[in-house]
Design a protein around this nucleic acid. Structure first.
Lengths: 211, 211
DNA sequence: GGGGATGTGTTAATATCATAGCAAACGCAA
DNA sequence: TTGCGTTTGCTATGATATTAACACATCCCC
C-alpha cells in the first residue's frame, strides 16, 4: 500500500499543464487569440486527444471548428494550478542550488515568490541572495507564522534534510518542494514533491546506452 | 503518435532504481551485507513486489528467506544504469543553475563527471567554476571531438536553448540533459531528458490545494 | 529433524494512462 | 442555404504499470 489512496487528477496530466501554459503564453505574445489542441499537440509532439483531455480537467470548454480562446484558457490553467495568485515560499539551504532557484525568474510566472532564505551556517546569516535575506533556520517558525508562509523549498544536503524538514513542519509548513535526495518522513497533512535529479539522469543514461 | 515507438524497460522502474541505490549504499555503510525487498520497500514507502520486479530487470537474483547480497546488488544496478564507469559531460550555460550542477558532488556517485563548461558571454570565458574551465560555445565541437564527450547538460535560458542544442548536436553530442523549459527539436539519434522543474511545482501546488 | 515464519519469483487481476474512433457543432465557401 | 472540412467532446479500446495471490525455497527455533 502506498501513501495516497485516491488521486483526484491524473499526475501525468498535471505535469503537462505547465508546458501547455508555456506555448499558450508564447502564442499570445505572437498575437494569436485562439488555439486548437492540434496546434498545441504539434508544438509539443504529443497526441491531440491527450491535450484535449488534459485541458478538459481545468473546466474550460472549447468550440468546434474554433478551438479555445487563448486568454480564458490561460486563465483556466493558471487558476487550476493556483498560479494566478502569488504564493510565498521559504527556501531552506542557501547553497548553490538554493541560490540558483532564488535567481530563477521563471517561477514568477508560476505564482511562486521565494520571500526569504534560511540556513544554519553562521557566516551566511544576515547576508542576502538576489535581495532575499538569509535568516537562521531557528527563526523560521516565528517568521512563517508572522508572514503566513506555508510552502517550503528544501535544498540542503541529504544528510541534514530530515532535520531541516522537521523544523519546517514545526514552523507550520504544509508543502515541501524537496530537492534533497532523501525520502522524507513527514506527517500525513504535509504535501511533498520530490525532485529526484538523479532519476532523470538514470533515464538519460539508459536511453543513451540503448542507441 | 509519439516519439519513441518501443521502450525496452519501464520508465517508472528506471526512475526508482537510483533511490534503491541510495538506500543500499546507506545500508552498506551501516555494515549490512544482505537486504530484503521488504526492507527497501519500507524504507521508501513502496510496495515490496514492485521493488522486487524493478530489481529483477537488472538481472540479479535473490535467495528466499535471505534476500539479496548487498554489494552484488549495488554493482548490478550501477551496471544496469551504466554508472560503474565515469561518463564525461559538457555543461552549456554557466549561470547559477549550471554552477550549482557543477558543484553537486552527488553526481560522482552516478558516474557523471562534468569536465568543462561552455557559455557565450565574453566575460565568463576563461574563468572557471569549481575547477572547470569555461570555454566559448563555439569551441565545443573541437573539444568534444578531442575528448570524446557525448553527453551534454543544457542550462541556458529557454530563449537560447534551441540554438545551443544545435551547436551541441553539431559537436557530436548524442544525449542532452535539458534543464531549459523548452521542447527541443532534435535529430532522431539524439536522446533527450527534460527536467521540467515547473511540472514538479505544479504537482505540489495541486496537492497543497487539495489538503 | 520437523514445523513455522519469512522472502523470493512468477502469474493473475486490477487500476491507471494513452490512443483510437465517431457523432455533433460550427464556420466557411459556394 | 447547403455541403464540406475542421475541431471538440465523448466513448471504447488498448497498452502499461501497480497490486494482489500463491507456490516454493530457506533459515530459525523447538
Amino acid at each position: 500500500m502506498r501513501g495516497e489512496p485516491k488521486r483526484l487528477f491524473p499526475h501525468p496530466s498535471i505535469r503537462r499543464l505547465p508546458s501547455y501554459l508555456r506555448v499558450l503564453r508564447q502564442l499570445r505574445v505572437e498575437g494569436s487569440q485562439k488555439v486548437s489542441c492540434t496546434r498545441i499537440a504539434r508544438e509539443l509532439d504529443l497526441d491531440s486527444t491527450q491535450v484535449r483531455k488534459d485541458l478538459a480537467l481545468t473546466g474550460i470548454t472549447g468550440r468546434p471548428r474554433i478551438g479555445y480562446e487563448l486568454s480564458p484558457l490561460i486563465d483556466a490553467i493558471e487558476n487550476f494550478l493556483g498560479w494566478n495568485r502569488v504564493t510565498d515560499a521559504f527556501l531552506v539551504g542557501a547553497g548553490s542550488l538554493g541560490r540558483a532557484l532564488i535567481g530563477y525568474d521563471n517561477f514568477l510566472r508560476c505564482g511562486l515568490n521565494i520571500s526569504a532564505a534560511f540556513d544554519v551556517m553562521a557566516e551566511k546569516i544576515g547576508s542576502d541572495i538576489f535581495g532575499r535575506k538569509i535568516h537562521h533556520l531557528n527563526d523560521m517558525p516565528e517568521l512563517a507564522r508572522r508572514m503566513g508562509v506555508t510552502m517550503g523549498i528544501l535544498t540542503v544536503p541529504g544528510s541534514s534534510a530530515q532535520a531541516a524538514a522537521n523544523v519546517m513542519v514545526a514552523a507550520g509548513i504544509t508543502g515541501i518542494w524537496n530537492f534533497a535526495p532523501v525520502k522524507l518522513d513527514l506527517p500525513e497533512n504535509v504535501a511533498v514533491e520530490n525532485v529526484e535529479l538523479v532519476s532523470s539522469l538514470a533515464v538519460l543514461s539508459v536511453n543513451m546506452a540503448g542507441k
